[in-house]
Design a protein around this nucleic acid. Structure first.
Lengths: 288, 288
DNA sequence: GTCTAAATGTCGGCC
DNA sequence: GGCCGACGTTTAGAC
């Protein structure tokens, strides 16, 4: 469409003897442009056009990948899918795993070139300085997608939902609990919910949306210690709120004298027995 | 190519009046099959063929996404790219961010169907039970890629590299340090490096490949406490090894009397002044 | 920008 | 399969 697409058409015809397919659709604001088995030069022109238009680009082919930045990596030749987003993200996917084998975060700058008979896509960013280099020896397909319509993701079941649940009904933590502050700052970091119990003692509440291990207890311990030091109060209590705990976490909670409340972010989850439950009772007991 | 492709061709011709493009290439073990603006039934047949062959699939179009499992989410209509992998992974990408807006981990099972005039791709897994539902109102393009060649990723700059660096030259931690055990188990979790200093005192070393905050100090504290309790030794020392620390982390290290060694996983990184550096000196000092 | 912790985190390793 | 911590984590929110 307009100057860019024309340029791609022209290049396609110039591609000496190789079969190049190009299709561009524009309907309801969405357009797709695809090259099959393009010559590198044609792929290059198409890429530059897609970058200019702010398209999402998919390149599939045989390539190598080099990365250098926070760490360094090298990936030998193989078939991969490269996804380039207009926000500067780059993802290199193999046929396995949810996580890309290599990537570049949003804000990076993509550049394409042809060198040594290869299509090269470079993505660079700063702070920290990082470079991703994808060299295609063969491009099987290149597609540019124009993204017209968006929508917001609505997600439930987060830690924030758990917090709201507790602020709505503080008795879920324990009878008489009064929340005073969320994200209360301490030297060890922010406390999820800070409040007082029925007898006026300070209570640090740490929330987790899912089953927790020793890390959550360390976190709670760190906050309890920090509040203790910073207020001079030696009687600060700690309570962990989570759907469940591992054995080790339960033992640590016990050792430190922390409370545990079995509660998840969703309505349907173990919200009933909130009376300062001994963590041992929450685990699968041998006698049931 | 062979039965499957033929079936798609046939279906394509049956697609009443709609323009459908199909291309299948097979060279050097790689093949690509693409439908442009397919009717949902054609897309369905192509998807099933791709699942059978173990192809990587990309679907771009206007869709809604529902997810229910560890959390729940809903995503209104919009243009997205769906990537389906033969290992059961599913990724829904918008034109922003490195992280997919919705996904399903490896091991899930993908099923495609046509319902209510929409192409529906469902991905389900168990343990935990999770479902992803992508409903396409319009498919702009569907591509199936056969992945033939793979290669292993070689990455350097990890925490393991840092550990090896220290095991090679324990004096980097401090003069006289003797490593005795890695991944030493404690109730609070495994200690990166456990050893003794020149005076025979137990030393817990926590390694981090990058700049650390309070979390790393809490981790170290948890291990030091655990080793202290489990051995009855009150004199256990803690040392954090990382390229640098935040102010809060430095203050916590100081408070707990832990040591800090400025060292990263790579050769070129601050490996020189390893003599039990006061964390304060590692931070940007007001007077330089 | 840095800092701090959440995340449908994902992933690997060990049990 | 659960548990545990690393990860080029990424991302959001606060300062």
């Amino acid at each position: 469409m307009h100057g860019r697409a024309a340029a791609i058409h022209r290049s396609a015809q110039e591609s000496n003897g190789r079969v190049v397919f190009l299709r561009r659709l524009a309907r309801e604001g969405v357009s797709v442009e695809t090259l099959h088995r393009p010559a590198h030069r044609d792929a290059l022109v198409a890429l530059e056009g897609a970058f200019d238009r702010g398209d999402m680009v998919v390149v599939f082919g045989r390539c190598t990948v080099e990365y250098d930045g926070r760490a360094s990596s090298s990936l030998g030749p193989g078939d991969r899918l490269l996804l380039l987003k207009p926000d500067g993200s780059a993802l290199v996917h193999t046929d396995e795993k949810r996580t890309p084998v290599n990537w570049q975060p949003p804000g990076s700058e993509h550049r394409a070139s042809v060198r040594d008979g290869r299509l090269r896509v470079q993505s660079r960013r700063t702070t920290p300085e990082e470079v991703l280099d994808v060299r295609f020896e063969r491009v099987d397909q290149l597609s540019a997608f124009s993204v017209a319509e968006r929508a917001e993701l609505a997600l439930t079941g987060s830690e924030e939902d758990l917090r709201n649940r507790i602020l709505d009904d503080p008795a879920l933590v324990e009878e008489g609990f009064e929340p005073l502050e969320t994200e209360r700052e301490t030297m060890a970091g922010p406390v999820d919910v800070f409040g007082r119990d029925g007898e006026g003692r300070a209570v640090v509440v740490e929330l987790k949306r899912r089953r927790v291990g020793p890390g959550a207890v360390r976190q709670l311990q760190g906050y309890v210690d920090a509040v203790g030091r910073e207020t001079g109060d030696e009687t600060v209590r700690g309570v962990l709120v989570a759907p469940s705990v591992t054995d080790r976490a339960a033992a640590l909670l016990d050792e430190r004298g922390f409370g545990f409340v079995a509660l998840g972010p969703d309505e349907g989850e173990n919200g009933d027995e909130s009376e300062d439950v001994d963590p041992d009772r929450e685990r699968d007991s041998a006698d049931d």
